[in-house]
Amino acid sequence: MMLLHGGAFSLAIDNQRSTPWQDLTPQARILCVVIMAMAIALTPNGHWLTWGTYSIGILSTVLVSQVTLSVLLQRLAVELSFVSVVLLGTLFREGGDILWQWGIVSITTTGLTILGSVTLKALLSLLLLNVLTLTTPVTDLLQGLKTLKTPVLLVAILASMYRYLGVLIEEFNAMRRAAVSRNLMIGRRWQRLVVGNMIGSLFIRTYERGERVHQAMLSRGYQGLPFFQESPKNTGYDLIALSLTVLFAIAGQVAYWVV
């Protein structure tokens, strides 16, 4: 288990650095991110000060972890463009003062508040998750999930999926190139049929590959229970980081009520 390299994707380009963030065990990093993401998501709309506090903490995590900023921004841009379609929907609603109106379409203060709140929430969560994936290889993430009591079977399936992702994408690309080289991708109706056939063919190859993989695993002594490496032990340092995260999450909430 956990010998994932070769064809597998590697997103964690900033894994090797030694910083206070990377010194945390993977499970502690996952927990910190989940706690903060939950705190962000559950903050009621319009609590700007809470998010202001959180964004200071998150931006310092970005700086401390020394992630490659250009890659981070690139990923954020792509991910936000995806979010923006849903975001627009939050704007048009009734309630509050009407700021702008055109026919039945109107922009109100309530709409703006919700748009701003949801945008901030999505942005902060994405920042956090990107820091996690840029600094933690998928193997470590899976190991962390296992330590956090995710069912072993599920983690093993996730690992097996991750291992074959690159293989199957490459296989599909080869099939697509073959179809293009035979002029099969001209015409929309024809193209749909060919894509459908390719997916069907890919499934047959996938299933057979799964059987072969199973046979290969059996021949190497697999007995139905995946073998896992020892997870890195929780350290006192993890505990400190986790307590600080929880305290910080609470402090953010308190900031709104106090100020």
Binding site: L153, A156, I157, L158, A159, S160, M161, Y162, R163, Y164, L165, V167, L168, T206, Y207, R209, G210, E211, V213, H214, M217, L218, Y222, Q223, G224, P226
Partner: peptide, 12 residues
Amino acid sequence: DRTVPLMGVCAA
């Protein structure tokens, strides 16, 4: 015992 390899490749 086929669960892990089969479900893994099917998810991929």
